[in-house]
Design a protein around this nucleic acid. Structure first.
Length: 280
DNA sequence: ATTAATGTTCAGAA
DNA sequence: TTTCTGAACATTAA
């Protein structure tokens, strides 16, 4: 569930680790199956202990911890991962711990993951480029313009809602925000990309920035399962501002037609939209 | 008590 | 080349 706004919130929440030195890293003994951590923890430790954290960045839906060695630790939450500098929601799903020294009052960086679909990787600059470079990831969603959208998706025959989820085209948008963005833009989720006008791509570009920035301002969306938390293990608030996501059967808050929000399935995932004010 | 649904990414098929 | 499908996994709702 963590999409760009949630991952960006995690990133901002751990900025206090910049300047700290890594004292130890450990794979936390977990009663269930272990998440993927690479390379092997002994090699991971050898390449990170003693290093200083130079910066904390984000690439798409991943947190990037840059070290003074030019290696980077990549934390990829996928569905239920959390990046924390506070006590985790439960003890049993803690997966990875990085002990720190000199990072203000921050003593450790944690990776917690209930379902365990996420992963932690230590990568060289070459590996970073291969895995997260322009070949693999499109421009960041916060950097999108109408021209970039047209360049990346203008010739695709896919439905626009499905295409917005393609990380090679645009990095950072996930299922929840794709629905919210298209509602804000007034565009039907099933509209084929190659039939969307320049003017409508401009609406989509504007909506992308409006929605993602608002979601970041509210520290992301914590859905009913309560999984997503910020780096201090606090819930986000943007779920209170959703206009369509998980609101099937409710009145559209924008249009006056008295139409109800509906749920459809596209590419095996839920899409929510207003049939009255979202047009192809 | 079983089954479906949840959402991200990747491998492999169409 | 582009698009689609299923699997990885844990937990909850039906």
């Amino acid at each position: 569930m963590p999409e760009l706004p949630e991952v960006e919130t995690m990133r901002r929440g751990i900025l206090g680790i910049v300047g700290a030195r890594i004292v130890d890293v450990e794979r936390v003994a977990c009663p269930r199956k272990l998440i993927s951590i690479s390379p092997r923890i002994d090699l991971f430790r050898r390449r990170t202990v003693g290093r200083t954290i130079r910066a904390v960045e984000r690439v798409g839906k991943r947190v990037v911890v840059r070290l003074d060695s030019d290696d980077a630790i990549i934390l990829e939450p996928r569905m239920t991962g959390l990046v924390l500098v506070a006590d985790p929601p439960t003890r049993e799903h803690l997966r990875f711990r990085c002990k720190l020294d000199g990072g203000g009052n921050v003593r450790e960086l944690l990776y917690w993951d209930r379902r365990g679909l996420g992963n932690v990787r230590l990568v060289s600059p070459q590996e970073f480029e291969a895995a997260y470079g322009r070949e693999k990831l499109g421009p960041d969603a916060l950097a999108m313009t109408a021209a970039l959208f047209r360049e990346q998706l203008g010739n695709s025959r896919r439905a626009v809602k499905v295409a917005l989820l393609d990380q090679r085209a645009v990095a950072g948008i996930g299922n929840l925000y794709a629905s919210e963005i298209l509602h804000q833009a007034g565009i039907h989720p099933a509209a084929r990309c190659d039939r969307i006008s320049r003017a409508k791509w401009a609406l989509i570009a504007d909506a992308t920035l409006v929605i993602l920035q608002a979601a970041i301002r509210h520290e992301g969306s914590t859905l009913s399962d309560g999984t997503y938390r910020n780096a201090l293990n606090q819930a986000g608030e943007y779920q209170n501002h959703h206009r369509v996501y998980d609101r099937a059967g409710e009145l559209c808050s924008r249009c006056s037609n008295g139409k109800l929000i509906v749920r459809i399935v596209q590419a095996q995932r839920s899409t929510f939209y207003c049939p009255a004010c979202q047009r192809k």
